[in-house]
Amino acid sequence: MVFDDRSPIYLQIAEQIKNDIVTGALAEDEQVMSTNQYAAFYRINPATAAKGFAQLVDEGVLYKKRGIGMFVSPNARLLLRTGRQDSFFADVVDPMIREAKAIGVPLKDVVQHIRTYGEA
């Protein structure tokens, strides 16, 4: 993963881990890398990695086992999916509709495509 220099890296780390949980790449109750492993692997400051992880603990996405490490919370996937569902139409569908209107793609074609693609 290449970090974007234009936003705080700890937020990008948190987003990446959330993504891995939503897609199932990280399972619930699975142990995540230690902050030092994470820092070494992505060549970033360990304090930055720790800040990203701490944010996820605050949000209830990860939990700590003292002396062992950090794990994905049992309900993390549901929590994250619900959060993303709330903003799905505003973040994903509405911009698509705006783009379709701007370039003259009829909405009935869009609906047709969604049906075909979704059932394929």
């Binding site: 970090f3 220099d5 234009r6 936003s7 705080p8 890296i9 700890y10 992505y42 060549r43 970033i44 400051n45 304090a47 930055t48 800040k51």
Partner: peptide, 29 residues
């Protein structure tokens, strides 16, 4: 750009004076 991800704090100097000092993630964004 090569080292910025490894830093926690940055000090920026110009003409022998302090331009800014801040945690690097505060300057991003």
């Amino acid at each position: 750009s090569e080292v910025s991800a490894m830093l926690e704090e940055v000090v920026i100097l110009d003409n022998g004076r302090l331009v800014t000092q801040a945690p690097v993630d505060t300057l991003r964004g």
